[in-house]
Write a protein that binds this DNA or RNA. Structure first.
Lengths: 188, 188
DNA sequence: GTATTCGATGTCATCAAGTGACATCACTGG
DNA sequence: CCAGTGATGTCACTTGATGACATCGAATAC
């Protein structure tokens, strides 16, 4: 157990978000963040692999939660139904703190490097879901299409939720967006 | 006009791909690439913004070509039909050199940083297509869904083509993948 | 033909990201 | 009270990336 000053990781996270929002990502050095959190730069890198990762900690839990929901779907479910279950599960992690999400997203969208990281996190979620679907016997191409399409719905719905009122329902938006997707793709 | 040694940009590109493939992206320094191309590291950064970008030069042309095709689609076309036209156009740029594409993709998939860049290039294409659709009067959410879905089809089809035989038809794969997507999303 | 101009490159200095090696300090268990 | 453990600090170093300035070769003007 640590007894120096509890919660260095959390302090670094909060300091990073604040500084990135205040003066921009590129104008903030790791040394700034660390000193703001009362530690040294070396300690920053012991908690987070790089300067971007500090905004993305915990995304493994989101991925695992979605994967568990996908795997818990009934064997009779179609690929998209299993993905829909995962999307429902995601709202538990994502739909928690509207204001925090709004600030975090505004920081991420303001910088290409951070957006890159966001995208690869989504891609890793898609890859995990695709593999989960393949384990259920879904053909590889169908699995990729369903999983990637799912993350499209997730992104679009989440962005709408973040841009909307603080009391909006992310689960409702998620479901409505999924329905809308089927309509848009069907229209040919 | 430059008269020192024509084509420094091209030499840097070729050297980078070769070295990244031979010894890996992280094991290759910019100095290595530059000296291989007969220039200095400083010159590398005059041609490419960073160490990754050297593998992604020309992606603006792909984006512009797809956007032009999307805008050239008849006004009566549905959003997905316009996106389909853009996908068709993309094959002209992407389906050219199978072996080069295979090598490039193997390098990109071997490194998370390069994959990040690949993803953001796709995202910028999606954003451009979504904006093009909105200019056609498509509601914002539908535009995002159609455009992002389009890049999903593009990725899945392209990966299949790269993994397949050298004489495979990318346009055929692209169209078949799009059809398959509508089937997968419709099955609920 | 020579001078001038301009663009591409080289050189140098510097900062920031990231990493490895090792010391240190506070607490914990015996 | 002491050894051990884990988190942190310190130091040195590599590499990516950028700004400032010098230089060199070719095209063009004269």
């Amino acid at each position: 157990m640590a007894r120096w000053q509890e919660g260095a990781a959390g302090r670094l996270q909060a300091a990073a978000l604040r500084l990135y929002a205040e003066r921009g990502y590129e104008q903030t050095t790791v040394a700034d963040i660390a000193s703001e959190a009362g530690v040294t730069a070396r300690t920053f890198f012991r908690h987070y692999a790089d300067k971007r990762e500090v905004l993305f900690a915990g995304s493994e839990r989101l991925r695992d939660g979605m994967l568990a929901a996908l795997e818990a779907a009934p064997a009779t479910a179609t690929p998209m139904e299993a993905v829909a279950a995962a999307l429902d599960a995601s709202t538990v992690f994502l739909g928690r703190d509207h204001e925090h999400s709004r600030l975090r997203m505004s920081v991420i969208f303001a910088n290409a490097e951070l957006l890159e990281r966001e995208l690869i996190k989504m891609a890793s979620i898609a890859a995990a879901m695709a593999e989960g679907l393949r384990r259920r016997g879904v053909p590889a191409r169908d699995a990729s299409l369903a999983a990637e399409t799912g993350t499209v719905v997730l992104r679009v719905a989440f962005e709408q939720w973040v841009a909307g009122p603080p009391d909006g329902s992310l689960p409702d938006l998620m479901r409505a967006t999924l329905v809308r997707l089927t309509e848009v793709t069907a229209a040919r």
